[in-house]
């Protein structure tokens, strides 16, 4: 029933929009792309993750929370002002590493609030905001295992989440280091971690910050450790549709102002230093130099 009502409302508002524009009385500038879509439908769909702790994950009430979600809500606030839509409806749509890019391209989601690395390869399909976090790819292993470096993984089962940059990184390193690992794939980070936790895989290769989040939330955090040299540096951006400069400007400007005003420090402290839901565990990841400079000189360069 709610669906029907919303469909009717959408149709109604599109109709209204048409009448308004045909009257030539559109009060403000003509919007394009995603902004137009949001203005006309009165809603924005955020792509959210299930287990990208602490960026975008579900709390005890299965509500989406996290650092990226907070940043996205700032964007929503700016949109409300700029589009004069005080009642802008915010909807969420779950995405995984596999589904986020097709869903963005096909227009199901308008803005992805997760932990997506900005890569040149992905920029062929989608666009990214300025970086809001910098992580590096490392691996989580059982504390009692003797795995210290990538070379120790030869012949061992290694899990990563399908659709992530880590997947191609492993393939790349296998070739470079002449090692051969058995690749396993989880649907999302929680499933990949589970594959490590239950002993099916010897290592979970993923962005260090996500690994830290998963370990902190596991039943026995002391059983795991993060080892190995960083395999790569990963700038995270909020993901949006390609070739949509007007919308990208709103997103970028919002993030820049959050960075500049120092509000980002409050958010950083909230998610990376203070206890976070659902279990009230602290991640204790102090703000690093790379990220500090990313806040000072915002950039949307892909790696």
């Amino acid at each position: 029933m709610k669906k029907i009502v919303s469909i009717v409302l959408v149709g109604f508002s599109i109709g209204l929009g048409l009448i308004q524009s045909s009257n030539g009385q559109s009060q403000t500038t003509e919007f394009t792309g995603t902004l137009k879509k949001i203005k006309e439908s009165g809603r924005i769909v955020l792509g959210v993750r299930e287990s990208s702790i602490p960026f975008s994950y579900l709390d005890n009430n299965q509500k989406s929370i996290g650092y990226s979600i907070d940043l996205c809500l700032k964007v929503v606030d700016s949109l409300k002002k700029q589009l004069q839509l005080p009642n802008l409806k915010v909807e969420t749509n779950p995405v995984t590493s596999q589904t986020r890019i097709p869903l963005m391209a096909s227009g199901v989601i308008d803005l992805e609030c997760g932990s997506t690395t900005n890569t040149k390869e992905r920029q062929k399909q989608v666009a990214f905001s300025v970086a809001h976090y910098i992580s590096s790819v490392r691996m989580a292993v059982k504390a009692n295992s003797n795995i210290k470096t990538l070379d120790d993984l030869d012949g061992k089962p290694v899990v990563t989440t399908s659709g992530t940059t880590s997947d191609s990184l492993i393939k790349q390193n296998e070739r470079g280091k002449k090692i051969n690992v058995v690749n396993l794939y989880g649907k999302d980070h929680a499933e990949s971690f589970l594959i490590l936790e239950t002993g099916r895989a010897s290592a979970f290769v993923m962005d260090d910050v996500l690994l830290a989040g998963l370990i902190a939330n596991s039943k026995k955090p002391d059983d795991f450790q993060i080892v190995g040299a960083p395999l790569s540096v990963e700038p995270y951006g909020l993901m949006l549709r390609k070739d949509d400069p007007a919308f990208k400007k709103v997103v970028d400007d919002t993030l820049k102002s959050v960075f500049k005003s120092g509000e980002v420090n409050r958010l950083y402290t909230k998610w990376f230093l203070r206890p976070i839901p659902p279990r009230g565990i602290k991640l204790n990841l102090p703000l690093g130099d790379a990220l500090k400079s990313a806040f000072q000189k915002p950039s949307d360069q892909g790696k």
Binding site: G33, G107, E121, S168, K171, Q172, E174, R175, R241, K242, D243, D244
Partner: peptide
């Protein structure tokens, strides 16, 4: 958003890493 670019050659493209 530009429309979809068809490319049936894609199956013969080489994977970035691994040479397959």
């Amino acid at each position: 958003m530009d429309s979809y670019r068809w490319n049936w050659q894609v199956f013969w493209n080489t994977v970035d890493y691994g040479g397959e």
